[in-house]
């Protein structure tokens, strides 16, 4: 099985029904994508497949069609994506465990709607659970990132 992840090609030998999440984490070592629930209820495992947000815990390897982007592919500490930079500016994270998924969901939202309303944000982000309750800063950061992306 071949996968393209963050622009790199990988040959994967895991069983075809293995969820993408565990291929990323255990087989490849891309641990930025997190395990939270395994049933697509918390969004911690969100990655992009061809730009679409996907819960990787519930996507079997043999059903992956398209190029995968994970949090590591969005940006790095040395080369931050604008959304990650905004997440830093707003000091969004607390425990931080859900934030990879939050950032990936926000990035998918901003790639389809350049100026999301509060209602757009409500809808796009309701699948991402945060037990620390960083939601007010997530909302503020998305609005801010939207205006920064327009200026960029």
């Amino acid at each position: 099985m071949k996968l393209t992840i963050n622009g790199k090609n990988y040959k994967i030998s895991a069983e075809p029904e293995t969820p993408l999440l565990w291929v990323l984490r255990d087989e490849i070592g891309l641990t930025g994508t997190k395990y939270g629930c395994g049933i697509a209820m918390c969004g911690a495992c969100t990655v992009h497949v061809d730009g679409q947000p996907v819960r990787s815990c519930s996507l079997p390897l043999d059903q992956v069609e398209g190029e995968i982007t994970t949090i590591e592919g969005l940006g790095t500490p040395e080369a931050l994506n604008i959304i990650q930079q905004t997440w830093i500016d707003h000091q969004v994270a607390q425990c931080g465990y859900c934030q990879s998924g939050q950032v990936m969901s926000a990035a998918a939202l901003l790639s389809t709607i350049d100026t999301p309303t509060d209602k757009d944000i409500d809808e796009a982000m309701s699948g991402n659970l945060c037990r620390c309750g960083t939601y007010p800063r997530i909302r503020a950061a998305i609005h801010d990132a939207a205006s920064k992306l327009k200026d960029a």
């Binding site: 590591e72 790095t76 830093i88 931080g96 465990y97």
Partner: peptide
């Protein structure tokens, strides 16, 4: 203050025990 852990936690690079990987590790 700016949180010390904020960059790691915004880029998926902060290390939780869940993310520790060692050579020949089993699960």
């Amino acid at each position: 203050q700016r949180r010390h852990d904020i960059v790691g936690k915004s880029t998926g690079t902060a290390l939780y025990s869940m993310d520790v990987r060692l050579p020949d590790m089993v699960y």
